[in-house]
């Protein structure tokens, strides 16, 4: 017996929670791939901790999205029974871990956005989103500090760590523009005080990233072209492989519990 895949609806509040849930789940899954493979034991634990923070955020957001949707789905069905085109995460977050520098640059780019995003969302007129934001902000503040400290040390470290960090920045830069997007549905939520405009965080994001890169003696790319698509379900080739691993057990043994 195979489980049919879920098609998602277009309710703006549902999609708003789902996008953030997908961000947290996909990045959390990527970080979990480091478990047992990090360059040192201490960092292995740190990456797993961040992954678990994100997984916790994803669970709360999926549960709320399912409640808003009102179609009898739950956190597990939303995570395990959607195909890649039904996922709404940022392309940045599904990019493979690469080396440690690339993982940390990805974390810096996202955390420098997520931290002010959740801080602003604490004022959402939606009490559930405001409560999730209050919890997530403390976690993302630490993720930002952790990734910033590493980027400073990689950039201002050895010639090789500098080269790898700079390469990671060049590689991931084009995925950063997508964070500041909002579609028409989300714009309605922004006007209603439920969501915040991600574009309003661009300046703060830029100043956080610039400060870290400057201290790290790294260079910010000047290429203005930005890749988009994740928020609309158009993903890079990497998400399908990630979901195959993430969803395998539930797809092969529907409803399995342990």
């Amino acid at each position: 017996m195979a489980s049919a895949s879920i098609q998602i609806g277009d309710d703006p509040l549902f999609l708003c929670a789902l996008r953030r849930a997908d961000d947290a789940l996909i990045l959390g899954h990527r970080l979990s791939e480091w478990c047992g493979h990090a360059p040192m034991l201490e960092e292995d634990m740190a990456l797993a901790n961040i992954a678990l923070d994100l997984l916790g955020q994803a669970r709360e957001l999926y549960s709320y999205a399912a409640k808003v949707e009102g179609r009898g789905n739950d956190e597990d069905r939303l995570a395990y029974l959607r195909d890649e085109r039904q996922y709404r995460n940022l392309l940045l977050l599904e990019q493979p871990n690469g080396d440690f520098a690339r993982t940390m640059v990805r974390q810096l780019f996202y955390s420098a956005f997520a931290d002010p995003y959740w801080r602003a969302m604490m004022n959402s007129s939606d009490p559930t989103l405001a409560a999730i934001a209050a919890k997530s902000e403390k976690e993302s503040a630490y993720h930002l500090r952790h990734s910033s400290e590493w980027i400073i040390r990689l950039g201002d470290g050895t010639a090789e760590s500098h080269r790898r960090a700079q390469e990671a920045i060049e590689h991931l830069w084009a995925f950063t523009g997508e964070m500041f997007e909002a579609d028409a549905g989300e714009r309605g939520l922004i006007d209603a005080g439920i969501a915040i405009d991600p574009a309003s965080l661009r300046e703060q994001w830029q100043s956080t990233v610039s400060a870290v890169l400057t201290e790290a003696t790294l260079t910010q790319p000047t290429n203005p072209w930005m890749q988009q698509g994740g928020r609309g379900g158009r993903h890079s080739e990497h998400l399908g492989h990630l979901l195959a691993e993430l969803q395998y057990t539930q797809r092969a043994f529907p409803g399995l519990t342990w």
Partner: peptide, 20 residues
């Protein structure tokens, strides 16, 4: 105890290893 390259990262690693 733990390994870390400097005091700042040692403090972070301590948080991650010993206050979970």
């Amino acid at each position: 105890s733990l390994h870390a390259p400097d005091a700042t990262l040692a403090l972070q690693a301590a948080r991650d290893l010993y206050t979970r």
